[in-house]
Design a protein around this nucleic acid. Structure first.
Length: 479
RNA sequence: CGGGGUGUAGCGAAGCUGGUAUCGCACCGCAUUUGGGAUGCGGGGAUCGCACGUUCGAGUCGUGUCACUCCGACCA
């Protein structure tokens, strides 16, 4: 039964038109609806439930590491935004402004936060006095606005949900450690919970966050071979602290500037989940964040005992801590199979008269459509095992796609010929010069994605200019 | 911001040389069904993106405009 035939005719095939496939999934799996403002999407219950699961897992980890949640205002006065020069320049083109309160024009216009560094800094200047006040490990869950020109659900919306951590430390070293630690939290979350393999690394100087000294990122490769920046973590040094006059008195009574970090991830991750794991039958969700982990489909439930047995299975799984749904609506079983495959539910349990007679149940794994008949007295164990198996299978599949689409290249020509096999990651050496970075993009279409922590030596010379190479860089087309 | 495409019911579409809107899905009701998107019968739902113009008459022709979407550039 584990054939790959496309069972759902309502969505565009991903090989035919990946972009169309993506928007079909987003709509047909009931994740979002469009609103009347371009780029502002309505996140529907099923989509929001995925976000809630992401939030719950990450929030727990943040708190385990000592972070506290706060809430900052959504408006930033123009003068405050302008305190750090690089920062304003980076964000100015995509800021939305509030100019009126009621009918009256404001004396100073307010920007709708595109990010909250400046707000945190303003506050930190007030509350940090002594080394005893450090570190400050704050995080907030909120939405931000960036007035993008082209928008796509989850991947690039004008308002999006995210989490932004902002921390202050007494020493540069401690701040650097925090930056890397949080990047590792994101990487771990992606690989273990979302089953998305990621490359950890640093952005090149031209690609750093506005105002940051170093920007780290995790990069994932989507099914179509385009890269997605899944999360970032920035080290600011004391640049913002100087601009905002944040000082503290050290143990030996000297006035010092604290060192700062910020790190964030967004609803874009949902787009990443879709494009990493989805297939022609719809969404495929990793069990850790799936709103429904197991859907129970009773077959011929008008017959004696079927619904009772289905409810019994549901109760046992709820007790075992599984997010489970029993669909006893009067749609046909076939309709339900398709519906929950579209929605990416990791496991489907079928229970019908024949199963009850044989003391068994049927379980089907979404990511590969494998069907298993299993004894019903081992229900809890089998479901738990299958959920792990699904996560592992999804990860392996995604990793295989990335490996298939990763090309090591020593010259521009090699890059161009590699890319004729389809988009993907190009691993190539770089001299460190921004000019070469731009030229590679111009000549091949792929831009620098990150300088991976795990360096390899592919060649001794820069892929572009032939001078001595400094770093291995991952290049790619990005979402 | 540059280049392409599309706007007719919730969705997808048809509508010829202009004559007052059609089909499928979805939705509602009833019945029969139920192991891969069931069937029959009945029903409701559209000022054809918007504006102006040509005409006795515009979904259809003209001008303008708006929105959405895809491909680039920029960006989480």
């Amino acid at each position: 039964m584990a054939d790959n035939k496309k069972m759902v005719e309502q969505i565009t095939s991903m090989d035919e038109d990946f972009a169309k496939w993506y928007t079909d999934i987003v709509k047909k799996a009931d994740l979002i609806d469009y609103s009347s403002v371009k780029g502002c999407m309505i996140i529907r219950p099923y989509g929001y439930a995925i976000w809630e699961n992401i939030q719950r897992i990450l929030d727990t980890r943040f708190k385990e590491l000592g972070h506290e949640n706060v809430y900052m205002p959504m408006f930033i006065p123009e003068s405050l935004l302008q305190k750090e020069k690089d920062h304003v320049e980076g964000f100015a083109p995509e800021v939305a402004w509030v100019t009126h309160g009621g009918n009256e024009k404001l004396t100073e216009r307010l920007c709708v936060r595109p990010t909250s560094e400046t707000l945190f800094c303003e506050h930190y200047a007030n509350v940090i006095k002594s080394y005893r006040d450090l570190p400050k490990l704050y995080n907030q869950w909120c939405s931000v606005v960036r007035w993008e020109k082209t928008t796509r659900p989850f991947l690039r919306s004008r308002e999006f949900l995210w989490q932004e951590g902002h921390t202050m430390h007494a020493t540069a070293q401690e701040a650097r450690e925090e930056t890397v630690q949080m990047l590792n939290v994101y990487a771990d979350f992606h690989e273990k919970d979302l089953a998305i393999p990621v490359i950890k690394g640093a952005k090149t100087p031209s690609d750093k966050f506005a105002g940051a000294e170093d920007t780290y990122c995790i990069e994932a490769l989507m099914h179509d071979g385009k890269a997605l920046q899944a999360a970032t973590s920035h080290y600011f040094g004391d640049g913002f602290a100087r601009a905002f006059d944040i000082t503290f008195t050290s143990k030996d009574n000297k006035l010092e500037y604290p060192h700062q970090t910020s790190w964030g991830c967004t609803t874009r991750m949902i787009g990443g989940i879709i494009m990493t794991h989805g297939d022609d039958n719809g969404l495929v969700l990793p069990p850790a964040v799936a709103p429904i982990q197991v859907v129970i489909i009773p077959v011929a439930f008008h017959k004696e005992g079927v619904l009772e047995k289905a409810n019994e299975i549901k109760d046992r799984l709820v007790k075992a801590g599984v997010r489970v749904k029993l669909d006893d609506s009067d749609q046909s079983p076939g309709w339900k199979y398709s519906e929950y495959e579209m929605k990416g539910v990791p496991l489907r349990v079928e229970i019908g008269p024949r199963d009850i007679e044989g003391g068994q149940f049927v379980v089907v794994t979404r990511h590969n459509r494998q069907k298993t008949f299993a004894p019903i007295d081992q229900l809890e164990k089998i479901i738990a095992d299958k959920l792990v198996e699904v996560r592992d299978g999804m990860y392996e599949k995604a990793l295989a796609n990335r490996e298939k689409r990763t090309y090591a290249c020593k010259s521009i020509d090699e890059i161009n010929s590699a890319l004729t096999n389809g988009d993907g990651f190009v691993k190539a050496m770089w001299c460190g010069d921004e000019e070469c970075e731009d030229k590679v993009k111009e000549l091949t279409g792929v831009g620098s994605r990150c300088v991976p922590f795990e360096q390899e030596n592919i060649s001794d010379t820069c892929v572009c200019c032939g001078r001595a190479a400094k770093k291995l860089v991952y290049w790619g087309k990005a979402y």
